[in-house]
Simulated scan of single mutants.
Amino acid sequence: MITTEKVVTPEQLREVFRVRVEVFVEEQGVAAEAEIDEYENSSIHVLALSNGASAGAGRIRVVEETAKLERICVLKPFRTSGTGKAIMIKLEEIAKEMGLKKAKLHAQTQAAGFYEKLGYVSDSDVFLEEGIPHIRMIKALGHV
């Protein structure tokens, strides 16, 4: 069973960082110093669990009155299990609770189809972030 929780303890935050380093740094080759950034303390983090084991993570920041969803990742064994969708639902829930009307994210192009299924639409050309092709996507958020 997949559950998601808003990170409130230092232990949970360490686990979020461990998951992100495994996916982005070890698997995708993003520089470690680029992965953990200056926005960690001003972001709200989410940890996804599968039967109590860490499965994925994501974070939300408010940028120009918009929910910017970032660092969304799922560990290999949990991909295609609904973990990514659960993370997105939780992040959007938090954004709505904050009164935000729109969400945006920088999707790796290989994951754009996943976000499209969740109602996101592309509004940019392809660009590189940490050497990986991305596209900006947006979605209007409904009411809580």
Rank of each mutant, 00 (worst) to 15 (best):
V7I: 05
E93P: 03
M1C: 02
H134C: 03
A86H: 01
K104A: 10
I132V: 14
I60H: 00
G131C: 10
A31Q: 14
S54G: 12
L100F: 06
K68Q: 06
K102E: 15
Q108H: 08
K76D: 11
G29Y: 10
S124Y: 04
R71N: 03
E70N: 02
K139G: 10
A86T: 06
A55T: 05
S124L: 01
E97D: 14
H45K: 11
V25F: 01
K90I: 00
A86S: 11
D125P: 00
R71M: 02
K117M: 13
D125G: 11
E35Q: 10
K68T: 00
G119N: 04
E11P: 00
K104W: 06
S122D: 03
G131T: 06
T66P: 02
V23L: 03
F78T: 05
I87A: 07
R59C: 12
I89V: 15
R14C: 07
K6T: 12
I60V: 14
E40A: 15
G58K: 04
K139Q: 11
R14Q: 14
S54F: 00
I135A: 10
G82H: 09
M98N: 02
S43D: 14
I2C: 02
K139P: 07
T83A: 15
A32R: 15
A48T: 08
T9H: 09
R61N: 12
Q28S: 12
G82V: 08
G84C: 09
R59D: 11
S124R: 06
L128P: 00
K139W: 03
G142P: 13
H134F: 11
A32Y: 15
R59P: 07
E15D: 11
T9L: 09
A112Q: 14
V25H: 02
I132K: 01
H134K: 06
G131M: 08
E5G: 01
G29F: 12
T4C: 14
A111G: 02
Y39T: 10
A31P: 14
A34S: 05
S122I: 08
K76P: 10
G52Y: 04
V16S: 12
Y120N: 07
E35L: 04
T109M: 12
Q28K: 13
R79A: 04
T83I: 03
T9S: 15
K101F: 02
L100K: 07
A67F: 04
S50Q: 12
E33D: 15
K101Q: 08
K139D: 07
G131F: 02
R71V: 07
G99N: 09
S122L: 05
Y120F: 15
A67L: 03
M98G: 02
V121P: 00
D125S: 09
K96D: 01
L75S: 07
A67E: 04
A57P: 07
S81I: 00
F24Q: 03
S54A: 15
C73S: 05
E97A: 14
M137G: 09
L100M: 06
I138M: 10
G142E: 15
I138T: 13
R61K: 14
K68P: 00
E11V: 08
L69G: 06
E38L: 13
K101D: 09
G29N: 05
N51A: 04
E97I: 06
L13K: 09
H106M: 09
E38W: 03
Q12A: 11
I89M: 08
R20E: 01
E64P: 02
I87N: 04
S50M: 11
E93N: 10
G82S: 06
K90P: 01
G82C: 03
V19S: 05
